[in-house]
C-alpha cells in the first residue's frame, strides 16, 4: 500500500526515501531546499498538531494532507511531495495560516511547493490547476491583464477541449449579461511590463 509505506518512511526519518525506493538521497537536502526559499522557512516551526489539516477545506482531496506534507518535506521525500496533487488543491483561503499555533505561514509554503513542482517538472501530467495557472500566465505576459475568453481557450486547448462543453451555458449567461468581454483590455505601457518581466527572468527566481 502506497500510503502505508509513506507513513513508514516518515517514521524512519529524513533522507531515507526516494520515489523508486532506491538508495537514500542526500540527507535533509529537500528540507534545506524548501527552507531556503522565502515562505518555506516555516517547516522548521511545525509541531505536527494537524490544525492545518483540520482547517483545510480541500484536505480530503489531497494525496497527502497538509500536516503529512510537512513531515514528508522533513523526511526528504522530494519526489513524492512535488509530484503530489496536494498543493494544487490549495485554494489560498489562509485558514491554516491564521490558525497555526506555531505561526507557520502555510499558504506561503504551498506556493513554494507549486513553484518547485512546476520548475522541476515534477507535477504529474493532467494536473488541471497547473494547466490553468500556465494559461493565466500566458495571457498576462501577452496583455498585462486577464482576458477570460483567451485564457479559457488556451486552457481547454491545453487540457481537453471537450470538457469545455458543459461550461457553455455559464459562458453564454455571462456573455448575455455583459460580463464576458470578447476582446482583451491591454495595458498601454506593455513594453515596460515586458522589460520588467524579461529582467526578472534573468534573476533566477525567488530563491537565493
Amino acid at each position: 500500500m502506497a500510503s502505508a509505506s509513506i507513513e513508514e518512511k516518515i517514521e524512519r526519518g529524513a533522507g531515507l526515501a526516494t520515489a523508486d525506493g532506491g538508495e537514500p538521497k542526500a540527507e535533509y537536502g529537500f528540507l534545506e531546499e524548501v527552507r531556503s526559499i522565502p515562505g518555506g522557512e516555516g517547516v522548521d516551526l511545525c509541531i505536527q498538531c494537524g490544525t492545518c489539516t483540520g482547517s483545510c477545506p480541500n484536505a480530503n482531496e489531497m494525496d497527502h494532507t497538509p500536516r503529512e506534507l510537512i513531515a514528508m518535506i522533513r523526511a526528504g521525500m522530494r519526489d513524492q511531495v512535488l509530484s503530489s496533487n496536494s498543493m494544487w488543491y490549495c485554494a489560498s483561503c489562509y485558514l491554516c495560516t491564521v490558525r497555526c499555533p506555531r505561526g507557520v505561514k502555510y499558504t506561503d509554503l504551498m506556493y513554494v511547493l507549486k513553484n518547485l513542482a512546476w520548475q522541476s517538472k515534477m507535477a504529474k501530467r493532467g494536473n488541471r490547476p497547473l494547466a490553468m495557472a500556465r494559461s493565466f500566465v500566458d495571457v498576462l505576459n501577452r496583455f498585462g491583464r486577464v482576458h477570460e475568453a483567451t485564457m479559457l481557450g488556451v486552457y481547454y486547448f491545453r487540457t481537453n477541449p471537450l470538457t469545455a462543453l458543459p461550461l457553455a451555458p455559464i459562458g453564454i449567461g455571462l456573455l448575455t449579461h455583459g460580463r464576458l468581454p470578447l476582446f482583451p483590455h491591454r495595458i498601454k505601457n506593455q513594453a515596460q511590463l515586458q522589460t520588467i518581466v524579461r529582467k526578472a527572468q534573468e534573476l533566477g527566481g525567488i530563491s537565493q
Binding site: P38, G39, W88, S92, Y111, V112, K114, N115, W118, Q119, P129, L130, M132, A133, R134, F136, V137, L140, V146, V197, A200, Q201, L203, G205, I206
Partner: peptide, 12 residues
C-alpha cells in the same frame, strides 16, 4: 498576478 501567477513563478 493573482493566485495563479504566484503558483508558477513567485518572483515574476
Amino acid at each position: 498576478g493573482s493566485t495563479a501567477y504566484f503558483a508558477i513563478d513567485e518572483l515574476l
